[in-house]
Amino acid sequence: MSQVRNARFQIGQVVRHRIYPFRGVIFDVDPTFANTEEWYESIPHDVRPAKDQPFYHLLAENAETEYVAYVSEQNLLPDESDEPLRHPQIPELFEDLRNGVFRFRYMPEH
């Protein structure tokens, strides 16, 4: 049985990819891989991450576009650039940014 590690990053934290040129804000965390096998197999074998680590859902952006990314913990680093993020969904989920972490927006129940 594999041991689940504690997540190194938190919801609202601004991070960047270790290899590819994109960054974003974390909006959800899976304790281990929870995407499709097809998605996993589409990752080139030489850079394919282990499944038994936290995976993060990001509101991500690169120089050209904004999107949602699913990234393993081993491929993330804290983003210390202080550059503003432009992803259009950030204001829907988060409020002010303090010390590299966005505060989750309060959502009243209907």
Rank of each mutant, 00 (worst) to 15 (best):
V4Y: 11
A50G: 14
V15W: 00
D82S: 14
D82Q: 12
E37Y: 04
V71A: 12
K51I: 10
A7W: 08
L59M: 11
D46V: 08
V71S: 03
D96M: 08
F94E: 00
S2W: 07
R16C: 13
R18E: 14
D30S: 04
R105A: 07
P88A: 06
Y70K: 01
Q74W: 06
V14C: 00
Q10G: 01
I26P: 03
E73V: 01
Y67C: 12
R5A: 15
Q3V: 15
N62A: 15
F55I: 07
A50K: 15
R16M: 09
A60F: 10
A34H: 09
E109Y: 12
F102R: 00
E41A: 11
D46H: 14
G12H: 01
E92F: 00
R8S: 06
D30M: 14
E61T: 12
Y20V: 13
F27S: 14
L77T: 06
W39V: 06
D46W: 09
R103M: 01
F104M: 06
V101W: 01
F9Y: 07
I90E: 04
E64Y: 05
Q74I: 09
Y56K: 02
H17I: 08
E38S: 15
R103Q: 13
L58K: 02
E73T: 01
G12V: 11
P78G: 04
A34N: 13
V47H: 10
F27T: 14
D46K: 07
T32L: 08
G100S: 03
P91S: 03
P78M: 03
N99G: 15
Y70P: 06
I11N: 03
K51A: 06
K51N: 15
I26K: 05
E83T: 10
S72G: 13
Y40H: 14
D96N: 06
R48S: 01
E66H: 10
L77D: 02
